[in-house]
Design a protein around this nucleic acid. Structure first.
Length: 786
DNA sequence: CTAGGGTTAG
């Protein structure tokens, strides 16, 4: 019997709480008069200016620890430095400290905060700061806000804000004008841009400011696709710099005039302007378009001389240029550039893969590179990558080309296709997986067991369990992997009954289960809370099948017991294990404590996790969520703070959805999507609709201590809701909406999605980091147990 | 503290 005598909270989680300063606090007489303040302030200024933000923040803390009050200038300086060095998380930390300091903020500090949140993409916070400014609003605040709205995809609101500014009696300067003109640089609003253009001419800012000139060039090139007018403006600009030259060159290149782009580039160089990384990326792309390998090579020399060959974008353009300027040997040059690049991203991988596909007969190498990309694991494919790969698969199913692949010495085996499918599954690209499937049918691999198992798993991981079963059914030669894939699929989708039926069929068919099969069986039980059934299988796995349970199996049982509410039994079970429980097991228990709001046990679990892994972000997050859900805001904030101090970063939550034109990914409050405006309008409509039929926002899931109304607004910016709203506006009934999330789905989102399914009559399938949810007509397959 | 330019496919 384990007794749960838990030490007091303070002793339990010592590393989480900041220790009080060991030195003596000076008494309250303080601030500028104290001789020790000035040197510390000087140090802070130096550190902030040098961009050593963390050190500067420590200095700030030290000033506060000494009982002195840092002045507003110190905070403002730190904020500016965070913005300059793009240390946005630290900037938010400074914001928290600034709020705690209770100092009265001036325009400069508030404008810095607007800029900070704007650059994080968090326009809601930026806007609420802006609106609360009252009389403190100045031209900088207006400009920052207009620009923030434009970059968040709310161009029309940005334009209205500009008009509001003029109405309020402010006279716009060059910053306001360029922000407002940028808001108009699209097809919808270009005509408003013309009105503002007239205004600009009168003020003389067109003549005096290069940035206003650049904005106007984009008004004509992007808003009207009118390069002639854009070029006329460019010619009339009294002052030019390499940015305005590059802008003109890029627009020529993008709007299908690579030859003119190249001519302008030569003009630019002859006029004495130095091309930089932006110029080179654009102009190399024009060379690819024209097939100008000779010029491309000269540019490559200049890239090296300008020390720009390490830039990822320039590298991509070079890889693409050599690959597209097809002469003997140029593909090898492309590969050489690729191999020499210090960093790769999905674009550079896609550029080289596409190079092999386009050069003809090198599809095997293309697939080989793709496998390498997946193996290295740091880069996920996108729809550009799949376009190339599908073409390669198509070529491979062509018998004539098939012969040439045997020549290259690379065997396109089942493993290659399996890895192709696994890549599609990892990003939830079921549509692409399906296309690969149809290619496979043509290429003769369809009967292969390994490929079919990959197909079963791909369909299941992409949320289409019916297609997974269909593929499984058609497979005659099933092995333990085939059965286990199918059981795992049913378990993850929450269809425990079918998973167990499948398991019995497997045993009846005389198939011997393995360790992985039992993980699937036990997790099926834990996803629906079948405690007795779970025990039965846990016991029979060693007794009847001679498989000794591993840590993962114990973990499944802890999950099963914990989430069913048998928290104490779960702890007893942990201590009865034949080996010491690892951090994952304790994390599982901590998760269960959050569900059942057991703070004491939760703290114990957190302590055990941190003993083994003192820097585990998950422990901090779970504990902080646990406190937050109990309304213990101060404790929650304290944990978040110490996380930041320990430089622990939580993975940002994001959701994505696949449509015909690719995978669309969204973060919290994301507004970078080209259709952001429509998405948020849809969200507003949905919020109204579902409230009418009984939805009540569960603001417990908002992990900040803010007003209820603001909490609701935060809730409606969760990435899963955004992805669903996008799914609703870009597909139509009766298509199932399948969305994916890298973390667990939030409780309020889960509730809201159930109402949304009822209100819209659409089925929604959610894959989170843990399992699937099939949501239809107001109910979820998980029966709200997850 | 506020404004400008880039690369991968079909």
């Amino acid at each position: 019997m384990i007794s749960l005598s838990l030490p007091s909270p303070a002793k339990l989680v010592p590393p989480l709480l900041p220790t009080s300063p060991s030195h003596q606090k000076p008494s309250s007489s303080q601030s500028l008069k104290n001789p020790s303040f000035e040197p510390l302030k000087d140090r802070l200024i130096r550190q902030a200016n040098e961009g050593n933000i963390r050190q500067a923040i420590s200095t700030l803390d030290r000033i506060a620890q000494l009982g002195l009050t840092p002045d507003l200038t110190s905070y403002s300086l730190l904020l500016k430095s965070c913005i300059r060095t793009r240390n946005f998380d630290l900037g938010k930390l400074v914001h928290i400290k600034l709020t705690d300091s209770r100092l009265e903020l001036d325009s400069v500090a508030l404008n810095s905060l607007i800029s900070l949140y704007s650059k994080c993409g968090d326009w809601v916070t930026a806007k609420s700061i802006f609106e609360d400014m009252g009389e403190k609003k100045d031209l900088v605040s207006w400009s920052a806000m207009i620009s923030c709205l434009t970059h968040s995809g709310m161009e029309l609101e940005a334009i209205f804000t500009f008009f509001d500014m003029v109405q309020s009696g402010e006279y716009p300067n060059q910053f306001c004008f360029s922000a407002a003109i940028q808001a108009c640089s699209n097809v919808d609003n270009a005509w408003i841009g013309i009105v503002i253009f007239g205004f600009v001419i009168k003020t003389g800012y067109f003549e005096s400011d290069v940035c206003v000139g650049c904005a106007l060039i984009d008004l004509f090139s992007k808003g009207f696709s009118d390069l002639n007018s854009a070029k006329k403006l460019f010619d009339k600009m009294p002052e030019r710099n390499s940015v305005s030259w590059t802008l003109m060159i890029t627009r020529y290149s993008q709007l299908g005039q690579p030859r003119t782009a190249i001519e302008m580039f030569l003009d630019m160089v002859f006029s004495g302007f130095t091309p930089d990384r932006f110029t080179f990326s654009s102009i190399l792309s024009s060379c690819s378009g024209m097939g100008f390998l000779f010029l491309g090579k000269q540019l490559h020399c200049r890239v090296i001389k300008s020390r720009l060959s390490e830039d990822v974008c320039v590298g991509c353009s070079l890889v693409d240029m050599y690959a597209k300027c097809v002469v003997p040997g140029s593909l090898n040059d492309s590969r050489k550039v690729f191999d020499h690049m210090p960093d790769h991203n999905i674009m550079s991988w896609t550029a080289i893969i596409n190079g092999y596909v386009q050069s003809g007969g090198k599809d095997g190498e293309a697939l080989e590179l793709y496998c390498k990309m997946i193996d290295e694991g740091r880069v996920l494919p996108n729809h550009f990558t799949f376009s190339s790969l599908l073409k390669a698969c198509g070529n491979l199913s062509n018998p004539e080309l098939g012969v040439q692949i045997e020549d290259s010495g690379f065997e396109v085996d089942a493993f290659t296709f399996a890895s192709l499918l696994s890549g599609a599954a990892s990003i939830g690209a079921g549509g692409k997986g399906e296309q690969i499937h149809s290619r496979l049918l043509k290429s003769g691999f369809q009967a292969n067991q390994c490929v079919c198992n990959a197909l079963v798993s791909m369909y299941s991981r992409c949320g289409n369990i019916e297609a997974a079963y269909q593929t499984f059914k058609e497979l005659e030669d099933r092995n333990v992997v085939s059965w286990t894939s199918m059981i795992t699929g049913y378990a993850k989708h929450g269809f425990a009954k079918r998973a167990l039926e499948m398991f019995h069929q497997m045993l009846e068919a005389g198939m011997q289960p393995n360790e992985v099969t039992y993980i699937a069986v036990l997790s099926a039980c834990s996803h629906v809370g079948m405690v007795d059934e779970g025990w039965k299988h846990f016991n029979s796995m060693s007794n009847e099948h001679g498989i000794s349970p591993r840590m993962e199996h114990y973990g499944c049982m802890v999950d099963l017991l914990g989430r069913s509410g048998f928290l104490e039994k779960a702890v007893q079970f942990i201590y009865s294990m034949p080996f010491k429980a690892d951090a994952l097991v304790w994390r599982t228990l901590l998760g269960a404590c959050r569900v059942h709001a057991n703070t004491e046990l939760g703290k114990h679990a957190a302590k055990m996790i941190l003993e083994q892994d003192p820097n585990d972000p998950a422990a901090y997050i779970l504990l902080s969520n646990l406190y937050a859900s109990m309304g213990q805001w101060e404790d929650a904030v304290q944990i978040r703070k110490s996380m930041k101090e320990r430089k622990l970063v939580k993975e940002a939550g994001c959701s994505w959805i696949e449509t015909e034109n690719g995978v669309h990914k969204f973060y919290v409050g994301d507004s970078k999507h080209p259709q952001a405006k429509e998405i948020y309008e849809e969200l507003d409509r949905l919020a109204l609709k579902i409230k009418e039929i009984g939805y009540v926002p569960d603001t417990d899931f908002v992990l900040h201590d803010v007003e209820e109304e603001l909490k609701e607004r935060y809730l409606f910016q969760h990435s899963e809701k955004i992805a669903v709203a996008f799914g609703l506006i870009s597909t139509s009934r009766p298509k199932t909406i399948r969305i994916f999330k890298n973390l667990r789905v939030c409780g309020d989102c889960h509730t809201a999605l159930k109402y949304i399914s009822k209100a819209t009559g659409r089925e929604i399938v959610v894959r989170d980091s843990n399992r699937f949810h099939h949501i239809r007509d107001g109910a979820c397959s998980c029966s709200d147990y997850w």
